[in-house]
Design a protein around this nucleic acid. Structure first.
Lengths: 188, 188, 188, 188
DNA sequence: CATGAATGAGGTTTCATTCAT
DNA sequence: TATGAATGAAACCTCATTCAT
């Protein structure tokens, strides 16, 4: 079945995000899927291919969602908030994927360049835009640091139980808080 | 010599922070130090001991610096800014250690509980304090996410060359930006 | 093949009984079987598992044979002699296993307790029985020492060429000699 | 100090007899003595030298005791019993040495031939003598098996707590039991 | 497509021994 | 004599990958 291929990706993602990439063996993946090691190689050339394909898959997915959020929106505030919420929505819906993307980034940062759809770039452009239009006074690099850092941590603290509440509420609070903090207050 | 022990820690830190923990072999460390693999085991019981000792060492060091910053300060604003700056100062002075601590956290989060001096806890208390005193209106969990996330990213973007400038300047800008964004703007 | 697993056990037994357990390396075993070291670990989790499995296997086998000898017999004298002969029969047929069991006992005595089928226990019960019935006058602990010690040595001296003769003859002589020496002569 | 040399032998003996020869490291020995590994090599050329020296030392000591017992005795019965008691006396006084000699024999049987004073040989001659003189009717090889086997087991069961009682009592009982069993009953 | 045994390279660890001090 | 750091060989074990079935 073509389904097996997806199952492999699915289970690999789970394991990678829980234990780390190197810490997860091909055997672990095979057992989780319910097949044997050899069978993995009918679907993928190597473990590394799984690793990369997973990153590109979810990277692309998140990219597309953010792009959509950018298109569908109205004014600048709406745009910003929608993007932030799209990020968190993705993280909450697919926590394994979000965690995995961070792990991958940390360990294989250099390999990321070959990939086209990098969510970070959209965020970076959006913030650059806001700055160019005079809406965001603060230096955009710092704003980028605040936004990406906060998003990652909100997700992390939510999955650790430090931040509680309904997902929708968390998304909205975070978007509001970032907009206020960066745009309404941030002089340079 | 007792010197060798420190050299091992030093080179291990460098390698771990560059390539990851599992990705670094004992042989890598030995070669970097200029000894053989076996010699490592005269100084450490296992690779894992090196991994843990490094985390505790730098965790403790950062903890102590933040504690000192908390003691030496004046009003609440000064306290907050000083702590933020202490964090970044540590990160800029010992980037390998800072990067390593993040890697360790990501992968071995559960093992962190056994350790006493966790910098995160000081930050957490400080922000809890500010909230209790009515200075910080925002929910403290979110503020914590903003602060820790931003600190990590400012460091990261600086080491990637995205954020430029003198270290002192970066520290001060970041502290200012966080204080304004969280305290002066953050309604609930 | 499931065959490989048995081959590993077979060759390991041979080597352990010749050279000792610690003195035999996993590579030795692999070479004897004609595979690589790694392949061993597809069949056993560790060298120690091989060590234990071998002991339990042959311990159980000897146990079962003695139990059978106890069931099939007639009067007390027949019972005793049959058990003695069963012991030696096993030792002569599977000298490696018998030697190995002794080695294991000497070195890992404490680990024996976890095992259920211990041939020694059957012998101990039989002799206790004979004593309770008044057939054996001597203190049973001493009788046990004489029997187990003699059995081990007869086997040893036979394999060293000190004792010669057909196996059947040796078995019968030993049984006769022990019965006479212990029962017919042994006052307390 | 020349004393250190003896301490090394003493502690090595203890460790070898407890854990086995290969299972005891040079470091174990050094630590037990309270010196460092390197110091061992001031006194011995190699671990193997310790192993051999220990065997020869205690082998010789037991040999001499038995020889003395043979000289000091009266009639054949006295001779036999005295030798048996000398064996057990040695075993009870120096259990580590006795246990070690057995371990050594099991593992390095072939290396024993180079050694001159082998207690087994005295026993063997004594029993041969008894047989030649018509006192012992049984084939001497079997008698040897009974005697050596019983001695080893009586010692073993005593140190395991299976056989209890004062040492003198055990020695006498064993000697009596063997004499009766072998000589007074043993027809061929 | 799938199995599962096997490979082979490489990982961590152990340990008898050497050697500068 | 003694130290203790270091070596180097070899031990046990892991794992991505291949391959006959």
């Amino acid at each position: 079945m073509a389904r097996t291929r997806d199952l492999i990706l699915e289970e690999a993602l789970k394991l990678f995000s829980e234990k780390g990439i190197k810490e997860t063996t091909v055997r672990d993946i095979a057992r989780a899927v319910g097949i044997t090691e050899g069978a993995i190689y009918r679907h993928f050339e190597s473990k590394d291919q799984i690793v990369h394909e997973l990153f590109e898959k979810y990277s692309g997915e998140l990219y597309d969602r953010i792009e959509k959020a950018l298109r569908d929106s109205g004014d600048e505030e709406g745009k910003f908030k929608r993007v932030v919420e799209a990020f968190l929505d993705f993280a909450f819906r697919k926590p394994d994927a979000f965690r995995y993307m961070n792990i991958f980034h940390h360990l294989r940062g250099k390999e990321v360049k070959r990939i086209r759809k990098i969510p970070f770039n959209l965020l970076s452009e959006l913030i650059g835009d806001l700055h160019r239009k005079g809406i965001l006074k603060m230096e955009p690099e710092y704003a980028l640091a605040v936004v990406t850092g906060t998003l990652e941590r909100v997700f992390l603290y939510k999955s650790m139980g430090i931040i509680r509440g309904r997902k929708k509420e968390i998304r909205e609070k975070t978007a509001e808080l970032l907009w206020k903090g960066l745009v309404e207050c941030g002089g340079s």
